[in-house]
Design a protein around this nucleic acid. Structure first.
Ligand SMILES: [Mn+2]
Ligand SMILES: [Mn+2]
Ligand SMILES: [Mn+2]
Ligand SMILES: [Mn+2]
Lengths: 230, 230
DNA sequence: TAATAAAGTTAGGCTAGACTAACTAATAAG
DNA sequence: CTTATTAGTTAGTCTAGCCTAACTTTATTA
């Protein structure tokens, strides 16, 4: 049975590799920063995880997940995202509140509990932030999405997810009166500073790249990001 | 913020004092046994809890809860019993499975979460084992109950709770085909070994004191344990 | 290619929460 | 009232997970 800490390491490695544009390995310093600990601490732990067969690693090398490490990590992600969904769907929490609570709930191990929760929620495919929920086998299908910042002038998009999950960002999205599923069209892009004018709900608004780079979209007509010929 | 361990100590002290026939203090050895650790460990921790103002204690003395310790402990009990209720009511777990899971869930602190859970469950008064659920202020009303072993010949009772919460005991109750809310009448008591013949669902069955001492009942007519004149 | 910077490791130390072994205080029995 | 028993404490040790400071390896850049 893995400790909270070990699970958080695996989850962090997943975020920095599998979930980050198909990079397959990550350095100790980056991992340390992501986990909010010092590199020295990660050095130790990563050796421990290697001894347990959860990561591939050798001195001065990069870290990646083994098959088993990935499975265990994905199950943490599964629990996290199912609890987030529960908190929003059943207890009425806002999408900017669920992450923090899920950080605790994700460490409750019972497979039976989590599979029943899944069922209770009608086997959701996505969490409140639009992120895919891994299945009970730890498999995940991440649909291809692009960021709003990649959008083209005049085209219409549907918001499917957000990259940044911080309460600050999510509350800003709330204030803009936008949510997952909403449609926005790109009016114009300013090449000087990457600011963008977008149109939604009968209004034009200017957003910074900090916003548009953190919003995932697909074509509002064909629901695709790649290979859209609309 | 209290650690898991500290919370477990407070909960344990509650169980051994407030919930155990109004005894008000408990010794280090008993506490150690209840927590599954050695007395030396408890000696240390109890001093720490005293320094934090959560227990009354002095060297070689007994341990009891301060006002604050009792409040904090009762909130753990509240969380425990609400999660047990959730697991049974919403996720369809059996009453013999919920305790173990609640042991983990009870340590998730968010007040907002637990109050919303309470609301989601329609503010239940009792958990799956018939135990009262403390309110958000840590107050609890424990109705007066007697054990089936105290029952009188020929009288009819309603099962309101169980004392032993172990899966073994609860599964035995299941096999007897009994549950909270069921009516049983006492046919006869054997003074030699305290065995009891009880009648329910058109059947007579003999039960040992190990059973009858762990089942709480009230009069099936007036719903009282004390002052019943039926 | 040599110097410098960045990345990563090691050694030693800290705290929480557990343990064992040896001790001391309180209580019960004779 | 003295002794034996039980209850409780202390000292020292261990592990997990963190830290800092000093060091080493790898990568970058002149
Ligand atoms: Mn999250
Ligand atoms: Mn999420
Ligand atoms: Mn319980
Ligand atoms: Mn219970």
């Amino acid at each position: 049975m893995l400790s909270f800490t070990e699970e958080n390491y695996l989850k962090s490695i997943i975020q920095l590799t599998i979930f980050d544009d198909d990079i397959t390995e990550v350095g100790v310093n980056k991992l340390a920063e992501n986990l909010g600990v010092k590199p020295a601490t990660v050095s130790d732990m990563v050796r421990k995880l290697k001894d347990k067969g959860l990561v591939n690693y050798q001195r001065y090398g990069k870290v990646s997940l083994t098959k088993e490490g990935q499975l265990k990590g994905m199950l943490v992600v599964r629990r996290h995202r199912l609890w987030e969904t529960f908190l929003q769907e059943k207890l009425g929490f806002n999408w900017d509140e669920v992450h923090e609570l899920a950080e605790e709930l994700e460490h409750i191990h019972s497979k039976k509990l989590i599979d029943r929760l899944d069922n209770f929620l009608d086997n959701p495919s996505f969490d409140p932030h639009g992120d895919a929920i891994p299945n009970a086998q730890g498999e995940i299908i991440i649909p291809y999405r692009k960021t709003l910042s990649e959008g083209e002038d005049g085209k219409s998009y549907k918001i499917v997810a957000v990259k940044d999950n911080s309460p600050e960002f999510l509350k800003y999205v709330n204030r803009l009166n936008l949510a997952i599923g909403d449609k926005v069209s790109v009016v114009s892009k300013e090449s000087f500073d990457q600011s963008m004018t977008i149109h939604f709900k009968d209004e034009n608004k200017v957003v910074t790249p900090k916003f548009s780079e953190n919003v995932f979209v697909v074509c509002s007509h064909c629901n695709k990001a790649k290979e859209c010929k609309c």
